[in-house]
Write a protein that binds this DNA or RNA. Structure first.
Length: 352
DNA sequence: AATGGGTCCAACCGCCACATG
DNA sequence: TCATGTGGCGGTTGGACCCAT
């Protein structure tokens, strides 16, 4: 990996982020939001370029990220969407709340592609490998009024079909998806075991659910079966079975791991007095030095109206679990991937 | 225990689109 | 219209990790 040009120019750090850098970036964004990414590093006291900060926030620090394994439904959805959208990872990610384009891209390249190939499916065309060439020639000469494209699921029992009408308005038909309940159970298990923040800080779950309620998930008219499965997925994921809330980039959040971090060294902080004060007031951020995946996180002193009564994300989450009220992160003026989700409400098939 | 190959993922690169002056 | 800055996206890759030998 070569050094990014702006990093060369300004002699900025690159490579893996340290816990200290994460802390600074997280504290800054949660307090002040993102105005202009290029000014974030300076204000947050980081020797990074704005692009790097943006990427780190979007792919790792965002509180609404869902970490951990992809569920079977998510995998199937990615395959279905990839068939329609191709390698437009950002648009695919927009349909999977809490997942980033990078994460989905990695999953595709490392896992889903191979699964499809194993099933004899060309991951590019989504057609059987031995028929792909023949069919390609045929379809180039004729345009049938209705195409039926089977979605090959990675789960044995799933059968999804996209029906394209002559106006190219597709209907997802999801038959026998939960015919034996195995998938639903598997998903539940996966989500129950995840220590993630399954909140909806930027409200795109709400948007998603709203679209489900309006029979138009992803801009598609959907069968009731599919709506139910998606709905189930979100219900479980959001409040139903998740008994703990944790910071998503901090996969294992335990009470015993909570350490108050109240002192910051601002020696290398180039952000000036304002930044110094900001860091003094900022939230605590603790990282297990031995294992990145087992570090913990705690808000200790955020002087925000929304958070002043809470000692930790976990407490906050548990409180909300009891109250059945989600934390509203929308107060943060964030510019992140999630903005795209709420802002675009894209219609897949406008782009075909 | 050492090593070599394979896998996975975080992060960078380069390009493009858009906004602004 | 052009130059410049910024954000966003998809492709790529370095390195950590895993596992078989």
């Amino acid at each position: 990996m070569g050094r990014h040009s702006c990093c060369v120019k300004q002699k900025l750090r690159k490579g893996l982020w340290s816990p200290d850098e994460d802390e600074k970036l997280f504290n800054y964004i949660t307090r002040f939001g993102v105005g202009c990414w290029s000014s974030v590093p300076k204000l947050a006291g980081l020797q990074r370029c704005g692009k790097s900060c943006r990427l780190r926030w979007i792919n790792y620090l965002r509180p609404d990220l869902k970490r951990g394994m992809f569920s079977q439904q998510e995998e199937d959805l990615i395959i279905s969407l990839h068939e329609v959208l191709g390698n437009r990872w950002a648009q695919i990610a927009a349909q999977l709340p809490g997942r980033t384009d990078n994460e989905i891209k990695n999953l595709w390249n490392s896992c889903l592609k191979k699964k499809l190939l194993k099933q004899g499916i060309d991951p590019t065309t989504h057609k059987p490998l031995n028929e792909a060439n023949v069919k390609e020639e045929k379809t180039s000469t004729e345009s049938p009024p209705q195409m039926q494209i089977p979605i090959i699921s990675t789960s044995p029992s799933a059968t999804t079909t996209l029906l394209f009408s002559s106006q190219c308005s597709p209907v997802i038909s999801h038959s026998n998806y939960y015919d034996d309940g195995r998938l639903e159970e598997a998903s539940r298990e996966i989500f129950m075991n995840k220590h993630v923040l399954d909140l909806d800080p930027l409200s795109y779950n709400d948007n998603f659910q709203m679209s489900v309620a309006q029979n138009s998930c992803y801009g598609l008219p959907m069968s009731s079966n599919y709506q139910t499965s998606i709905r189930t997925l979100f219900d479980q994921n959001q409040f139903g079975t998740n008994s703990r809330y944790g910071f998503s980039s901090m996969p294992s959040l335990t009470n015993s791991d909570h350490v108050s971090v109240t002192e910051f060294s601002s020696d290398n902080n180039s952000g000036g007095e304002g930044c110094h004060q900001m860091m003094e007031n900022a939230s605590g951020f603790c990282w297990d030095a031995e294992n990145k995946l087992d570090h913990s996180f705690q808000f200790n002193a955020i002087k925000s109206e929304d958070f002043k009564t809470c000692n930790s994300w976990e407490e906050e989450g548990q409180q909300n679990l009891q109250n059945h009220v989600s934390i509203d992160f929308s107060c943060y003026p964030l510019t992140s991937l999630s903005e795209d989700l709420t802002g675009t409400s894209f219609d897949i098939f406008q782009q075909i």
